[in-house]
Amino acid sequence: RVIAMPSVRKYAREKGVDIRLVQGTGKNGRVLKEDIDAWLA
Protein backbone atom coordinates (compact mmCIF):
# COMPACT_ATOMS: atom_id res chain seq x y z
CA ARG A 1 0.00 0.00 0.00
CA VAL A 2 1.28 3.45 -0.95
CA ILE A 3 1.52 6.10 1.76
CA ALA A 4 0.08 9.39 0.53
CA MET A 5 -2.28 12.08 1.75
CA PRO A 6 -5.78 11.98 0.20
CA SER A 7 -5.12 15.31 -1.53
CA VAL A 8 -2.03 13.81 -3.22
CA ARG A 9 -4.01 10.73 -4.29
CA LYS A 10 -6.65 13.01 -5.84
CA TYR A 11 -3.96 15.08 -7.56
CA ALA A 12 -2.40 11.92 -9.04
CA ARG A 13 -5.81 10.68 -10.21
CA GLU A 14 -6.55 14.02 -11.90
CA LYS A 15 -3.18 13.88 -13.70
CA GLY A 16 -3.78 10.26 -14.76
CA VAL A 17 -0.82 8.94 -12.75
CA ASP A 18 -0.80 5.46 -11.19
CA ILE A 19 0.47 6.42 -7.74
CA ARG A 20 1.90 2.91 -7.21
CA LEU A 21 4.52 3.63 -9.90
CA VAL A 22 5.76 6.82 -8.24
CA GLN A 23 8.78 6.65 -5.91
CA GLY A 24 7.95 8.58 -2.75
CA THR A 25 10.57 10.90 -1.28
CA GLY A 26 8.76 11.94 1.90
CA LYS A 27 9.07 10.48 5.39
CA ASN A 28 8.79 6.66 5.32
CA GLY A 29 8.53 6.74 1.52
CA ARG A 30 5.44 8.94 1.50
CA VAL A 31 4.46 10.17 -1.95
CA LEU A 32 4.37 13.97 -2.11
CA LYS A 33 2.77 16.28 -4.65
CA GLU A 34 6.29 17.16 -5.82
CA ASP A 35 6.90 13.45 -6.56
CA ILE A 36 3.88 13.40 -8.88
CA ASP A 37 5.16 16.52 -10.66
CA ALA A 38 8.65 15.02 -10.98
CA TRP A 39 7.22 11.77 -12.37
CA LEU A 40 5.27 13.72 -15.00
CA ALA A 41 8.30 15.83 -16.00
Rank of each mutant, 00 (worst) to 15 (best):
R1K: 15
R1Y: 03
R1Q: 14
R1P: 14
R1M: 08
V2Q: 09
V2S: 09
I3D: 11
I3V: 10
I3Y: 03
A4D: 05
A4E: 05
A4R: 04
A4M: 04
A4P: 05
M5W: 12
M5E: 15
M5T: 15
M5L: 14
M5A: 15
P6L: 09
P6A: 10
S7I: 09
S7W: 09
V8T: 07
V8Q: 02
V8W: 02
R9I: 13
R9V: 12
R9Q: 10
R9L: 10
K10S: 08
K10Y: 09
K10D: 12
K10I: 08
Y11F: 04
A12Y: 01
A12V: 01
A12P: 03
R13M: 15
R13Y: 15
R13E: 11
R13K: 11
R13A: 13
E14V: 10
E14T: 11
E14S: 11
E14R: 12
K15R: 12
G16P: 01
V17M: 04
V17R: 00
V17I: 09
V17T: 03
V17D: 00
V17W: 01
D18V: 05
D18A: 06
D18R: 04
D18Y: 04
I19R: 01
I19E: 02
I19G: 01
R20F: 11
R20P: 02
R20Y: 09
R20S: 14
L21V: 15
V22T: 03
V22A: 03
V22S: 01
V22R: 01
V22P: 03
V22F: 03
Q23N: 13
Q23F: 11
G24E: 02
G24N: 03
G24F: 02
T25D: 02
T25E: 02
G26N: 03
G26D: 03
G26S: 04
G26F: 02
G26I: 02
K27T: 14
K27G: 09
K27S: 11
N28A: 14
N28K: 10
N28L: 14
N28Q: 13
G29E: 06
G29W: 04
R30P: 02
R30D: 07
R30A: 14
R30H: 12
V31M: 04
V31P: 03
V31R: 03
V31W: 01
L32Q: 10
L32P: 00
K33A: 07
K33W: 07
K33L: 10
K33P: 06
K33N: 06
E34F: 09
E34G: 12
D35P: 00
I36D: 00
I36W: 00
I36K: 00
D37V: 06
D37H: 04
D37F: 03
D37P: 00
A38R: 12
A38K: 13
A38G: 09
A38F: 14
A38P: 01
A38W: 10
A38D: 14
W39S: 05
W39Q: 06
L40T: 06
L40F: 08
L40W: 07
A41C: 11
A41N: 14
A41G: 11
A41P: 06
A41Y: 11
A41D: 14
A41M: 14
